[in-house]
């Protein structure tokens, strides 16, 4: 049975449809990420699941029960907000216990659960402090604590890491993931950061303009993007999607990931694609080389440091299996097998 199921869920404000007949389901204990650029409706979708917004059409089911018209508290969910939404005048302990106090959980039980959560998150020393007296990362942990102490089976997170610095974000990513697995929660996690989605999720729901573009595992999303949009959204740096009719023929876009392109060493003269080096960006473990092929720009990811001069000539090569093809008009994926294109590599 799926823990969360959305059926044709739509949210409209007047004519504008923030969420447009979205359907997906997530199995219990899975980590699902709603991914997309800002304004794609992912946060609204999360708020519809939480019950903070009312759906215009469609149904929301949690653990098989139709909760579409239930109040947030009756849906048995917990939520972590982007701003953390900690109560500034209450201590860390009171913040975490807020929901238990509302529900009238006995004091001994409160005490026991608070200790467990505080130990789990490593905030036992901060319990008497006010939110303004602790760091952003610690506030994040308190918000997590408030969400998990309720022991709700479903946890919703709205861009919880966007206010943290890169180092801390990386750390919290792993921590949230392991917490979710340890507690066996079903997680719906909203982010615009594809790295977060790829590294944490069991299932990624990629959205654009209120609709689902692709609902798949991270590996599937990486290996078989269903459209040029999905291809360009995933990967650091994302896939090159370019128009090179000399290679693909008319009406098709060529997609190739930067890490799948290599420099031809020149032994096979006349092979590969002639390119001009525009810029080289050295990142340590690898380098990003920006190349110009005709009017198109391709990014190439090469290991280590690369000795290439600006404006010098280079020949790019790749394996035929690494090539993705997209329809130039619709942007949709076109299977290679159905196209007998000679790929000059």
């Amino acid at each position: 049975m799926s823990a969360i199921r959305l059926q044709e869920v739509t949210k409209a404000w007047g004519e504008a449809r923030a969420v447009d007949s979205v359907s997906f389901e997530t199995a219990a204990g899975r980590f699902a990420v709603l991914l997309g650029p800002s304004g794609c409706g992912k946060s609204t979708t999360l708020r519809l699941i939480a019950g903070l917004e009312q759906v215009t059409a469609g149904r929301v089911l949690i653990a098989g029960q139709d909760v579409t018209s239930l109040a947030p508290a009756a849906r048995r969910i917990s939520m972590v907000f982007q701003s953390y939404a900690l109560f500034p005048h209450l201590s860390v302990a009171e913040n975490i216990l807020f929901g238990l106090k509302v529900r009238g959980v006995p004091a001994a039980e409160q005490e026991k659960r608070l200790k467990r959560v505080a130990d789990l998150l490593g905030i036992a020393k901060l319990l008497e402090r006010k939110p303004s007296q602790i760091s952003g990362g610690q506030q994040q942990r308190v918000a997590l604590g408030r969400a998990i102490i309720a022991e709700a089976s479903v946890c919703l997170m709205d861009e919880p890491l966007s206010n943290l610095d890169a180092q801390l974000r990386h750390e919290m990513r792993r921590e949230i993931r392991s917490l979710q697995q340890e507690l066996g929660m079903t997680m719906i996690y909203v982010t615009h950061d594809q790295t977060e989605a790829m590294s944490m999720a069991d299932q990624v729901v990629l959205m654009k303009e209120g609709r689902i573009i692709q609902n798949a595992s991270p590996a599937e999303l990486y290996a078989r993007p269903v459209s040029a949009f999905a291809a360009r959204f995933i990967g650091t740096p994302p896939m090159n999607v370019v128009s090179l009719p000399s290679i693909t023929g008319e009406g098709l876009l060529l997609g190739i990931r930067p890490e799948h392109i290599r420099l031809d060493d020149g032994r096979n003269k006349g092979k590969g694609v002639a390119a001009q080096v525009d810029a080289v960006e050295y990142l340590g473990a690898d380098s990003l080389v920006t190349c110009r092929v005709g009017a198109e720009i391709l990014t190439v990811r090469l290991p280590g440091q690369v000795e290439l001069k600006r404006s010098s000539e280079a020949r790019l090569a790749w394996d035929p299996e690494a090539v993705h093809l997209f329809d130039a008009a619709s942007g949709l994926r076109v299977e290679r097998e159905t196209h007998t294109v000679v790929l000059t590599t």
């Binding site: 939480a50 903070l52 109040a71 947030p72 508290a73 969910i77 917990s78 939520m79 907000f81 982007q82 701003s83 939404a85 109560f87 807020f98 929901g99 509302v102 529900r103 408030r146 309720a150």
Partner: peptide
Amino acid sequence: IPPALAEAAAIEGA
């Protein structure tokens, strides 16, 4: 007062 506080409280059942 940020509206998120009211939402957080609503989810907690207040």
